[in-house]
Amino acid sequence: MSVNGYIKGAFEIAKGLGITLKNLHRGPITVEYPHEAIPVYPRFRGKHELRRYENGMERCIGCMLCEAACPTNAIYVDAAENNPHDPVSPGERYASTYEVNLLRCVFCGDCEEACPTEAIVLGHDFAMANYERSDFILTKDTLLNPDEPQVIIRPEA
């Protein structure tokens, strides 16, 4: 073996040990998940939410386009006519029923894409475990009142 070989070997060892030394004083990267929040990317697609306008009116007009766009038939919408004196949403029509079946949903985001009023969005909540199958059906009530209120519109949207 040549001298060059020894020098090169020592350099590689030093380089490797350098990384070890560099990480020696860095804390652990494991996150204490339930106690610590994990940042998600802005375009992350989590649990569905229905948004409102600033005046409190629902954005959803019950047009059922999300239902039509859904590739797994996870969405069920029924529409009804607004009471002109106490409207739920602007215009004549609102969603009287809005249900998302999380067991069917593949979180593809086609519903967001189809929505003409940006009412349905996939939020950042990904903790969706439950004990009952029936709890995986999100009703209008839960969709409109998410645990973490957020008003992010995806940058490209």
Binding site: E67, A68, A79, A80, E92, R93
Partner: peptide, 9 residues
């Protein structure tokens, strides 16, 4: 039948 149906569904 107002708002009760969509022709595709």
């Amino acid at each position: 039948s107002r708002f009760q149906y969509r022709p595709w569904q």
